[in-house]
Simulated scan of single mutants.
Amino acid sequence: MNAAIARSSGPGRPKDLEKRAAILEAAKRLFPEHGFEGTSMDAIAASAGVSKLTVYSHFKDKETLFAEAVRIKCVEQLPPELFDVPVEGSLRTQLHVIARAFFGLIVSEESIALHRLLTAGTGSSQKLAQVFWEAGPQVVQRVFGDLLRREIAAGHLEIPDVERASSQFFCLLKGELHARLLCGCCGGPFGEAEIEAHLGATVDMFLRAYATRG
């Protein structure tokens, strides 16, 4: 993780920020690989090259670390500047940029592994799912909703329920391609043409539903 993201995660000396970044990198890798229960704070500390005491000095418990790892992963793939664009620019282009970044996030190996972890039906999975939702998807949908509100104010969109529209956009982006990947029946990596056709059709459908008439 780059230094800019590390600095945005919390206060502290440069050395402390480097350790925090190393801990988060280890957490982002180990949680999807071994699951929440199978990933110990000792393992994260060893992978990050720090002591377990250092891990606890930055994150009070494993659940907090898990939530922050999810949040940082989303920020890396969907940085705030993606959603903070001038309203006089091309809305279609910006929606496609956001769609591309989001799709890249959800089809990554880490995301697929994390999805399977959260739907495994283990004792902690329900609580983890709530933590994941609040740290990741809920934040993304809220920021996207702010973008939609700015476009509504500029007269580009007509949306009676922004929260619902935001949810619809990201659900549409998952579509059949994501479902096939989760089921393991995609037949190999998706081709760029197939992905672009899916993203373009999703953006077109969203705008047909909510773009200001005329």
Score class of each variant (00 low, 15 high):
Met1Thr: 06
Met1Tyr: 11
Asn2Pro: 10
Ala4Asp: 08
Gly10Gln: 05
Arg13Leu: 13
Asp16Met: 10
Glu18Met: 07
Glu18Val: 04
Lys19Ile: 00
Ala22Phe: 05
Ala26Ile: 06
Ala27Glu: 01
Leu30Met: 08
Phe31Met: 04
Glu33Asn: 12
Phe36Met: 05
Thr39Trp: 12
Thr39Phe: 12
Thr39Met: 11
Ala45Val: 06
Ala48Trp: 11
Ala48Ser: 07
Gly49His: 07
Gly49Met: 04
Leu53Lys: 15
Val55Gly: 03
Val55Trp: 06
His58Ala: 11
Lys60Arg: 06
Glu68Trp: 15
Val70Ser: 06
Val70Asn: 10
Val70Arg: 08
Arg71Asn: 13
Ile72Gln: 13
Cys74Met: 15
Val75Thr: 07
Pro79Tyr: 03
Gly89Asp: 09
Val97His: 02
Ala99Tyr: 04
Ala101Glu: 01
Phe102Ser: 04
Ile106Glu: 08
Val107Phe: 01
Ile112Arg: 10
Ala113Phe: 05
Leu114Gly: 02
Leu114Arg: 07
Arg116Asn: 14
Leu117Arg: 14
Leu118Arg: 03
Leu118Ile: 02
Gly121Arg: 05
Thr122Asp: 01
Leu128Pro: 00
Val131Pro: 10
Val131Arg: 15
Glu134Leu: 12
Ala135Lys: 06
Pro137Glu: 15
Phe144Ala: 09
Gly145Ala: 12
Leu147Glu: 04
Gly155Pro: 11
Pro160Val: 01
Ser166Gly: 14
Lys174Met: 14
Lys174Phe: 12
Gly175Met: 03
Glu176Phe: 02
Leu177Lys: 03
Gly187Thr: 00
Gly188Ala: 10
Leu199Gln: 01
Leu199Glu: 00
Gly200Lys: 04
Gly200Asn: 09
Ala201Trp: 02
Val203Ser: 08
Val203Phe: 08
Phe206Glu: 04
Phe206His: 07
Phe206Ser: 07
Ala209His: 12
Tyr210Leu: 01
Thr212Lys: 15
Arg213Ile: 08
